[in-house]
Simulated scan of single mutants.
Amino acid sequence: MPHLLLKTIFIYSFFLMQGCTAQSQLVNDEIETVTKENLKYYLYYPEGYELDDKEGFGLLLFLHGGGESGSELEEIKKNGPPKLLVEGKQFPFLILAPQNPHRRKWWNTEAIMKLLDSVVESNNVDRKRIYLTGLSRGGSAAWELATQYPKKFAAMAVVCGMAPLPYAHWINKKMPIWVFHGDRDEVISVEESDKMVAKLKEMDYDVRYTRYKDVGHNSWSRAYTTDALYEWLVNQKQK
């Protein structure tokens, strides 16, 4: 039976500090710092999931928006795929939904990737069918992940996220992209997506764009209830 697991993982990063001799104004130095990220998350297993299935299962990484950040994991059930799961929708792939523990900070993308790698390693996941999606602040993080880890994801769907135009040059051209945005968004302007999609098309990327008329920042309410989105995702596989 399909079910959701609640888990917490601690992410550590290490850096080294070495001493130096200040013989000039230009000093050669190195520092090691230690950072820790506490990530709570839900992990959804689809109906029929088997650990020994030879084909493996796809996995969707979902990154929520700023409003669901903090320490109460229940918050991320308010929107996107987690909301649909609570309402009884079934998906044909695993869904990993971590929570950004920082109310006022961006997603720690390095920590996200360490969590993702850990989940993939311990579950029956087809590494060629890992999908990425995010809304608002999570959509912005999705663009960032696509640039930093261009060969990781089979497809990406971004909903009303900030989209720095230079990122277009770093994204894997073989990865299909679907962008959603409302034309009355007063939080993150629709121009962010307009310009990014135009740039991607100019560079011959495989990109779709759904631009909702008379819709504000909550375009995720329509985007994530679009069945065609999940049909599209499940048909993507890294070549």
Rank of each mutant, 00 (worst) to 15 (best):
D194Q: 11
T21W: 04
E74H: 05
K36T: 07
P176A: 14
H64T: 09
V158M: 08
L16H: 11
Y45N: 06
K173W: 13
I9Q: 14
L43T: 07
K7V: 06
M156W: 08
K114N: 08
P92L: 03
L84P: 01
A157E: 02
H3C: 04
N108C: 02
I9L: 15
N124Y: 10
M196L: 15
E192N: 14
S140A: 10
V125C: 04
L16N: 13
L115C: 12
E87D: 04
F57E: 02
N235A: 12
E75P: 00
K105Y: 12
K83S: 11
I130A: 06
E74S: 07
Q18E: 13
P150Q: 06
E110D: 15
E186Q: 09
G48L: 15
L116H: 10
I31E: 09
F180M: 03
Q148T: 08
Y205I: 04
Q236C: 04
A111V: 07
K40Q: 15
M113Y: 11
T35L: 08
F153P: 00
R208Y: 09
A154Y: 02
L115F: 12
S69R: 08
N100H: 07
R184S: 06
V159D: 07
K173Q: 15
P2Y: 10
H64Y: 13
E30V: 12
G161S: 09
R137A: 11
L26S: 11
W107K: 05
A198H: 05
K7T: 07
D204W: 02
F62Q: 07
A22P: 01
D183V: 01
Y167L: 07
L43H: 06
G19H: 07
Y12N: 13
K83I: 02
L165I: 14
L135M: 08
V215N: 13
